[in-house]
């Protein structure tokens, strides 16, 4: 298995992607870049944002 095939295999990209190795490599690189694009959280044991976190109502100026 070469590097391109290994990259495609991880997320389950099979036969349909055989001729698209360049797209796969680009997507993998893009994902790595995105993950490094934000500052690491100050506390890595903090609770993450829950799904569907509806904001608390704010005090309006009106």
């Amino acid at each position: 298995m070469n590097e391109d095939e290994a990259a495609a295999r991880a997320p389950g990209l099979g036969e349909a992607w055989r001729a698209r190795a360049e797209e796969v490599a680009e997507a993998a690189a893009q994902a790595r870049m995105m993950a490094q694009g934000f500052r690491a959280p100050a506390d890595e044991t903090a609770e993450p944002m829950p799904a569907f976190a509806v904001p608390a109502p704010a005090r309006a100026v009106r």
């Binding site: 991880a10 994902a31 993950a35 959280p41 993450p48 944002m49």
Partner: peptide, 26 residues
């Protein structure tokens, strides 16, 4: 395809870290 495909390569750990950083941004 170009816009969606990177999502298959994001690690679960990175998704949680993003949601953690999201709380700080809020």
């Amino acid at each position: 395809r170009k816009r969606l495909l990177p999502g298959l390569f994001v690690r679960a750990e990175d998704y949680v870290q993003a949601q953690r950083r999201r709380r700080e941004l809020v």
